[in-house]
Every structure is written in C-alpha cells, then in structure tokens.
Design a protein around this nucleic acid. Structure first.
Lengths: 271, 271
DNA sequence: GGTGATTTGTGCGTATGTATT
DNA sequence: TAATACATACGCACAAATCAC
C-alpha cells in the first residue's frame, strides 16, 4: 500500500490506521499472534516511528488493539458475559414485588460455571445531586451507601452502589456493615417499603482513571452504567448505580410475555 | 505544580493530565472559555509540546475535552437527551402487543420542543450472524433491512436498523422503499405476527471511523447500542439494532407498576 | 474579500527508560 | 545478561483551520 499523502488525502497516520484496520478485519494476526513490531511497520510503510504510533493509537482507542510493553501489540479479545438485569414478570398484577425478577445474575453466573465473588462496604455519605433528585432529598443530604464490588472468576466485573435515605434505612438491616441475607430489598420490604417498580437509566461513558485502574480497562473501553431508581407505593426508596466494563459485559432486558423469549439472544461474542 | 519525574513516579504526561483534570473539576475554564494554548501549558509546566499533547490526548479520550483546530481546547458540554425505550404496560395480560409501549420517543421529542427528522432506506442484504442467530435463520440468509437515520434539531441522533426475514416481509408493506405509516410493527401485525414480547441486549463500544463521522463524535465518545429482538407467538420476527451517541443520549426503561414511576429521573445532565 | 496572526494537526528525527523474553 | 519491543520525552518544521483586522 502506498500511503504518501497527496492533496485532499487523509493524513498518513489515519490512512495507515485504516490499512491496519482492514488487515485486522481480513483476519491477519488472529488470536495470540502479535502485530508486526513498530520498527517493522516503519519500514513496511516507509514512515517515522511517530506516525506508526499515532496510527496504532487510533486503533487502541477504538478498542481493537492492546499494547503490552516489552511484548508487542495484540488484538483484543471479546468474550462477553450476558447479564440479565430484568425479566418481566409474566402478566404480573400491579403491586407485585420486583425483587425476584431482578436477581437472576447469580444463578446465571453459577450455571455458566463461573465463580462469583464480591467485596462489600457500607458508608454514610453526602449524596450527589444525581441521587438526591431521584430520591427527592435535599441537596447534600446524607444517605446510606452500600457498595458491592463483584468479581467473576477473580476478575473485576461490576461496581454496584445502592443509596438509601437514612430515614428509611434507620432501624433496618441496611445499617449493618454487611450484606443483607436475602438481599437489600428484603430489608426494605420488612420495613414496609415493597419495591414494585423501577426506572432504569442507561448510559455509557469513558472511565475516569480510578475506574479504569479498578476495571483493568485500557483506553478504548467504555463503561456501561445502569442507574436504577427503585419505587415503592409511597415513592422512590433507593437508587442503585451499577457500572460495568463494556468490553466484557452486556445487559439484557426481557420484556413482555416471558414464555416466548427464553431462548432468544444466547450469543457469545460480537465484532 | 512540579511535575519533574522522580523515581517510582508516574510519567510526566500522566501527572500533567491529572493536574489538568483536577483544575477542570475545580471549575477553572467553565463554559465557553478555552484552556490555555499548548504553548502556554508548555511554559507553565516546563515540558515539551509533545508532552502537553500526550496529556491533553488522555483527557480527550476520556471525553472531558475537545480540541478544535485553529481555535483551541474546550470543555465538552454534556446535555443529555432521555430516550424512553420501554414503559411497562400496567398489569397487561400476556399476549398484549408491545407497540404502543415502545414508540414514546416521538411525542417526547416534540414535547421538548425539538425537531425530529429522519432519512429512510430499505435494502435487501445478507444478514450477519448476529441477526441470523436471533432470527433463527441460516447463516448468510437474505433479510429485509429497513434503516432509519434520525436527527434531532438537524443533528445526527440515532441509527436504527430493523431486520426482517424475507419470508415474513414478503407481500407486506415492509417491502416498500418507504416508512410504513403506523410503524413497521403494524405491517407485521397485519401479516399475523403480533409482537408481544422482546429481548433487549445493551452494550457500549467505541465507534468505528464511519460511525464516528456520521455521529460527529470525536474520540472519547462511545456508542450505546440496543439490540432488540421482537418476538411473536411463533417466535422471533425482527431484530432492531439502534445505535446512539452516548454523550448525548440516555436510554430509559420504566419497569413494573407504571403509575408510581412517572416523575422519576427527570434530570438533565451529569458529571 | 484578503492577509496575517494564532492555534491545533501532522510528520520527522533522536535519545533514553522500562518491561519482557 | 543481552536483545527486543513498547513508553516517554525532547526538539523542529510545516500544514490547516480559525479569527481579527
């Protein structure tokens, strides 16, 4: 390929990136085989090392490649784990608790033969506006923050932060510095707040450095963020923000009549 | 700040990036004011231009900054549009069509005083495995692809690609090279395939160059991808993949009893 | 409408550090 | 230990876009 830059052409490093992308898609360098080293690419294309690095930067930030110092540059693998975050209760009457429908992931992980572990922290913090607005609290009001760090086969998987108004959590098991057996929603229900509905807001963004470190996510890997507001008869009772590393996870909602959706979408990877 | 590199320290450009991140979070350079120009940062921190650019690259790839050639480097603004992709029918009986529950976004956009426009294309293509597996077709089988490019106030907003088995679409309005009045699901229903359930698979990834160009998305902006498999009594009838630019959009699912969730989560921006 | 100053974008060269093999 | 390969850092020159005049 000739990548000398003519008039009206894209910059060299972008054309180099495009050519490498094509070669990647064509299936060169499958699996564990590294790409040609930087010096090799310099001479293959007749450009400076800087230009090679700019081109590879592009593909790294697209999430296609990973660079490992001292080893080489490799394709990134894409093994994706499905995470069922909601299964519609089949024709459930209004007022039905949601709990049973939302904690499927544990069985799923174990059924797939994967080890699910977690760390737990309980904190009292001043809530951000994200939280106060959804819980209808005053700005900066204190909330109970229950954080679960989950690992799948020892690898960081998700961060789940549940926020409860102190008023609701007081005198319940939610004040304990340990996970509630049966789940937090059981403790809420015991206090008379049965979660019968929720609103999920989903967004994606790049991780900040701290998140990137925890998830062991290099550049080019976005986070998938689920912000769930749990609602009981009297109003919102908790806000749970769960963050996933998007290159390893996918969220699944099964909506409407359940019986017909059981076998849909069991596909491992993409791209 | 002193960013000379000592032993065991992080690299200069990373420490520079961290310092700039701090200054950004502290609220320097609010709104339309540009950051100091590269030359200014060079002298402020006593580093080479290359190092400044590496540091700014980090923040650009985090989605914090945008660079505009000839102008300067600016904070990226975060005005987010909510997109209601699902509202649970309130205690609906099994077998209820989903259509009415899923096309809320049109009214929502108009209620917000925004102009919603779209382009439409109808193609016959060989399906990818993503599609064939979900529609239970043979690999590479042909499908009807109906593509809607949506714009909000003239800005690119979403790409929606609906895939139908040719067998189902034949002799319906889905073969027309125009949008179906009343929506595609009406045409399906007319042919006896009433969509009563669906499975949504959500993921996030970086755009490829073509997608980035269309969405006018710079580096650091992931896509949010919704893959919806629509299911009728007899099985899956269509797969719709919708891609959103994650820095401008958020997907919202209202689940469980509707009445109590109406006012939840009406928050404009984050971060 | 054009010109020049400013600012980011591209591209080259070189040297040295650090992780892996 | 030595060789290899990516990471960091400096310097320079010119291109392209924007804006003020």
């Amino acid at each position: 390929m000739n990548i000398s830059r003519g008039a009206g052409q894209a910059p060299k490093y972008q054309r180099l990136a495009a050519d490498l992308r094509r070669r990647i898609m064509d299936g060169e360098w499958q699996g564990g085989v590294p790409l040609p080293v930087e010096g090799e690419l310099e001479s293959q294309y007749g450009v400076a090392r800087n230009t090679v690095r700019l081109a590879v930067d592009v593909l790294v930030n697209e999430g296609l490649l990973v660079r490992i110092q001292g080893k080489g540059t490799y394709l990134k693998d894409h093994s994706v784990v499905d995470h069922h975050v909601y299964r519609a209760p089949n024709g459930a009457a209004p007022g039905t608790p949601l709990g049973a429908a939302t904690s499927v992931y544990v069985e799923e992980a174990q059924a797939a033969g994967r080890k699910l572990t977690s760390d737990f922290q309980m904190l009292i913090v001043r809530a951000t506006t994200d939280i106060t607005e959804r819980l209808r609290l005053a700005p900066g009001e204190a909330v109970v923050l229950r954080r679960v760090l989950r690992y799948l086969d020892g690898e960081p998987w998700s961060v789940e932060e549940s926020h409860y108004p102190v008023r609701l959590a007081a005198a319940t098991a939610l004040m304990d510095p340990d996970p509630v057996p049966g789940g937090d929603e059981a403790a809420l229900a015991e206090a008379g707040h049965v979660e019968t509905a929720c609103v999920d807001e989903l967004c994606a963004r790049m991780p900040n450095p701290e998140e990137a470190r925890w998830f062991q996510a290099g550049p080019g890997v976005p986070l998938l963020v689920q912000l769930r507001t749990g609602v009981a008869q009297a109003g919102p009772v908790r806000v749970t923000e769960t963050r996933y590393c998007a290159d390893r996870n996918r969220l699944v909602y099964s909506l409407g009549g359940l019986e017909s959706t059981a076998s849909v979408g069991r596909v491992p990877a993409q791209r």
